Amino acid sequence: DIEITTNGEEDAKRVIKELQKRNLEYHIEVHGNQWVIKVR
Rank of each mutant, 00 (worst) to 15 (best):
L19R: 00
N23V: 03
K13D: 06
N23A: 08
T6N: 02
K13L: 14
Y26I: 05
H27Q: 12
E10V: 08
Q34V: 14
N23L: 06
K21A: 13
V15Q: 02
E29H: 06
E9I: 12
T5W: 15
E18W: 15
G8N: 15
K17Q: 12
H27K: 12
R22H: 11
G8K: 08
R40A: 09
D1L: 14
E3D: 06
I4V: 05
K38N: 04
K17I: 12
Y26V: 04
A12W: 05
H27P: 00
E3F: 15
Q20M: 11
I2D: 04
E18I: 14
T5A: 06
I37R: 00
I2T: 07
R14P: 03
N33P: 06
K13F: 13
K13N: 11
W35D: 00
W35T: 03
E10R: 09
T6H: 02
I16K: 01
V15S: 02
V36F: 07
K21S: 10
D1T: 13
A12E: 01
L19Q: 00
D1E: 13
Q34F: 13
H27G: 05
E10C: 12
V30T: 06
D11P: 04
E29N: 04
W35G: 01
V15T: 04
A12F: 12
D1N: 11
Q34K: 13
K21F: 10
R40F: 14
E3A: 09
V15G: 01
V15R: 03
E29Q: 08
T6V: 15
T6R: 05
R40K: 13
H31E: 05
R14F: 10
E29C: 11
E18H: 08
H31K: 12
I28P: 00
T5Y: 15
N33M: 08
V36Q: 03
T5V: 15
E3Q: 11
I2R: 08
R22A: 10
E18K: 06
I2G: 04
N33Y: 08
I28Q: 01
R22G: 04
K17V: 10
D1C: 14
V15M: 06
Q20S: 07
K38G: 01
K38A: 04
I37G: 00
H31M: 11
N33C: 07
L19F: 04
Y26A: 03
I2L: 13
K38C: 11
K38L: 11
D1G: 12
K38E: 02
K38I: 15
Q34H: 11
N33E: 09
N7H: 12
V36D: 00
Y26E: 00
Y26D: 00
D11R: 08
K21Y: 09
Q34P: 01
I28A: 03
E18C: 15
E10P: 05
L24T: 03
K21P: 01
I16L: 06
R40Q: 09
E29M: 07
G8S: 15
Q20V: 12
R40P: 07
H27S: 15
Y26W: 08
N7W: 15
I4G: 01
L24G: 02
G8V: 07
N7C: 15
K21I: 10
E25F: 12
H31F: 11
E10H: 08
E29D: 05
A12H: 03
I37S: 00
V15L: 10
I4Y: 09
L24Y: 07
A12K: 03
H27I: 14
N33W: 06
R14N: 07
G8I: 07
K21H: 08
K13C: 13
N23Q: 09
D11S: 10
I16E: 04
D11L: 09
E10A: 11
I2M: 12
K17N: 08
G8Q: 07
R40L: 14
N7F: 14
I4K: 01
V36M: 04
D11V: 07
Q34N: 10
E25Y: 12
V30G: 02
L24A: 06
W35F: 06
V36T: 06
L19Y: 02
V30D: 02
I16S: 02
G32Y: 03
K13M: 15
H27D: 12
I2K: 05
R14A: 11
E18T: 07
E9G: 06
G32E: 07
V15H: 03
N7D: 11
D11H: 12
N33R: 05
I2V: 09
G8P: 02
L19W: 02
V36A: 02
E9H: 07
D11Q: 13
W35M: 04
E29K: 05
Y26T: 02
I2P: 03
V39W: 06
E29R: 06
E9M: 09
T5R: 15
R40H: 14
L19T: 01
Q20W: 06
E3S: 12
E10I: 08
I2W: 15
Y26F: 13
H27A: 11
K13G: 06
T5Q: 08
K13A: 11
E18M: 15
K17A: 14
E10L: 09
I16M: 08
N23H: 11
R40G: 06
Y26P: 02
T6Q: 02
A12Y: 06
N23W: 05
T6F: 11
H31G: 03
A12R: 03
R22P: 01
N7A: 09
T5E: 05
I16W: 02
A12M: 12
L24F: 06
T5C: 14
H31L: 10
N7S: 10
I16Y: 02
L19M: 04
R22I: 05
E18Y: 15
Y26H: 02
E10Q: 09
V39S: 02
V15P: 01
V30C: 10
V36L: 07
I28E: 01
T6I: 15
E10S: 07
E3W: 15
K21M: 12
I2H: 09
V39Y: 09
G32L: 04
R22L: 15
V15N: 01
E3Y: 15
G8C: 11
E18A: 12
R40Y: 13
N23E: 05
D1M: 15
L19H: 01
I16R: 02
W35E: 00
E10G: 06
I4H: 02
E29S: 09
V39E: 00
D1Y: 15
K17Y: 12
K38S: 07
I16F: 03
N23M: 09
W35V: 05
N7M: 13
H31S: 09
G32T: 03
I16N: 01
L19N: 00
D11M: 13
R22T: 05
K17G: 08
I37L: 03
L19E: 00
T5I: 15
L24N: 02
I28D: 00
H27E: 14
E25Q: 13
N23T: 03
E29Y: 10
V30I: 14
N33L: 08
H27N: 09
W35Y: 07
N7R: 10
T5H: 13
V39C: 05
T6E: 02
K13I: 12
N33K: 07
N23C: 06
E29I: 11
I28W: 03
E18P: 01
E25P: 11
L24K: 05
E18D: 07
K21E: 12
I16G: 02
Q20T: 09
Q34S: 09
D1I: 15
E29V: 10
K17W: 11
K13Y: 14
D1P: 10
I2C: 14
V39P: 01
V36E: 01
T6P: 05
V39L: 08
K17P: 01
A12P: 01
V39K: 00
K21N: 10
K13V: 09
E25K: 14
R14L: 10
G32A: 04
Q20A: 09
K38T: 14
G8L: 06
V39M: 04
G32P: 03
E25I: 14
I4S: 01
V30M: 08
V36N: 02
G8Y: 07
E9A: 10
I2Q: 06
R14I: 10
I2F: 15
K13T: 08
N7T: 11
V30W: 06
E9D: 04
E3H: 11
V36W: 03
V36H: 04
Q20H: 07
Q34D: 05
R22Q: 12
G8R: 11
V30E: 03
I2Y: 15
R40E: 06
W35N: 01
K13Q: 12
V15W: 12
G32H: 04
K38D: 01
I28N: 00
A12N: 02
V36R: 06
E3N: 07
G32D: 07
H31A: 07
R22E: 04
E3P: 03
I37F: 08
L24M: 10
